[in-house]
Amino acid sequence: MLGKTANGLFWMYRSLERAENTARLIETGQRIALTRLESGEGEWQSVLRSAGSLDQFEENRDEMTKEAAIDWLLRDRANPSSVMSSIDNARQNARLVRTALTHEVWEATNAAYMAALDLLARKVAERDLPGVLRAIRQRTSLVRGMTHGTMLRNNIYNFARLGTFIERADNTARILDVKYYVLLPSASSVGTSLDNVQWETILRSVSARGGFRMEYGASGGPREIAQFLILDRRMPRSLAFCMNKLCDNLRYLNSGQPKLGEAQTKAQQIERTYLSHDIDAVFDYGLHEYIQNFLGLLVELSGQIETDFRFYE
């Protein structure tokens, strides 16, 4: 496969994953705002921080309002992580790697783009927001479904998966990074309504509410949430799950090669050092530092993948 193609696949799937994550963040923010258990603006600020675009928002927009935050996350082309920018970017990359995709995947991607163009042509009114977000989630899910259902499990698929899981791990880690203080055992006065809202926010942001309830019932607290999102290998958005997948896909890519790739070595190292302890060890180490380190290592891993597989000249 061409290095350029690997690069395009990696970014196509990163962008799709990002579009979904951003859409989910908007949904969560809106939900919290509606339940009005906390001052709205503060929550939107933290949503923007989770999306990694608070600084850019402040450069581009005058005031922090719910409408401005939603519009920024949903439609603004100046925001490279907005749903619109991400879907556009996914489709541009899909065009670039058209020959590596099945017809079904390409069509689903193109359809997602056209639907987004249509849905996001104008500012989305509050009453339309749930429907728009649902439509977008369905469209990106369709791409994922077509990917699973029609793509050969070859290197093309492996690069698609690398993009997906790097982005997903990054997203989960950033949400944890913004909200880590809520999960600290010392800071929590367990059971207050504020805590409940905060935990719910975190779980919603990674679509983990149902899974968590299934696992812990009503008894789970911050420690369990941290355990679930960081170390639980059954939870498809946890750091451990994503790293495990990254290691697998890198191993497939390197099979048959004379020596282990550096990215693979790095990924295995991250998994060993950060994801094979129990949650108490993480708290002992310091949750904040732990997540900060993890985020830094993800960036390094992404760079190493680019180098190993000759994405650029």
Binding site: M1, L2, G3, K4, T5, A6, R98, T99, N155, L253, F309, R310, E313
Partner: peptide, 25 residues
């Protein structure tokens, strides 16, 4: 796509040992 061959651009190619070669992974 229909031929099942690579689609390359100039920057994917260079001359290596007297042949035109494409940069693969």
């Amino acid at each position: 796509d229909q031929m099942g061959v690579e689609l390359v651009e100039g920057h994917d190619l260079r001359v290596v040992d007297g042949r035109v070669a494409m940069r693969t992974t």
